[in-house]
Amino acid sequence: MIKGLWSKVRLVCGNHSDEEKIIMSPHEGANSAISKALYRSSSGMFYSCPKYYPENRNENEPCCRNHISVKEFEDMIGYIANTVCKYESMGGTFEIVGLTWKSRSGVEYSVINQTDEHIDIKCVNEKALWKK
Rank of each mutant, 00 (worst) to 15 (best):
E117H: 07
C85L: 15
E28Q: 14
K8V: 04
G92M: 09
S103Q: 04
T115D: 10
D120Y: 05
M1W: 08
I68M: 11
R10N: 10
D18A: 09
K86W: 10
S25F: 14
S41I: 10
S110I: 06
E61Y: 01
N125E: 00
T100Y: 01
A33Y: 11
S41G: 12
P54W: 10
S48H: 10
E126R: 15
Y52K: 10
K122L: 07
E61T: 02
C13I: 02
R57A: 00
Y87S: 11
V111W: 00
N113G: 09
V97E: 09
I119Y: 02
S103P: 05
S105M: 14
S110E: 11
E126N: 15
F46G: 06
E72V: 15
S7F: 11
N113R: 12
E19H: 04
L5V: 05
E28M: 15
M24F: 08
S41R: 14
W101I: 02
I23M: 01
E95T: 12
N125Q: 05
E61G: 04
V97M: 04
W130I: 14
H27E: 12
H16S: 03
I23N: 00
L38A: 13
E74C: 14
N66T: 03
A81I: 05
Y52N: 10
C123K: 04
V9N: 01
H27I: 13
M24L: 07
K122E: 06
S89Y: 03
Y53R: 11
R40T: 14
G29V: 06
L11I: 04
D116W: 09
A128H: 07
Q114V: 03
H67L: 13
G91T: 08
I68H: 05
K36Q: 13
I68V: 12
C49Q: 02
L11K: 03
P54H: 12
G106A: 08
K132W: 07
Y53T: 06
R65G: 10
C123P: 03
L38N: 13
S32A: 10
K131D: 09
K51I: 02
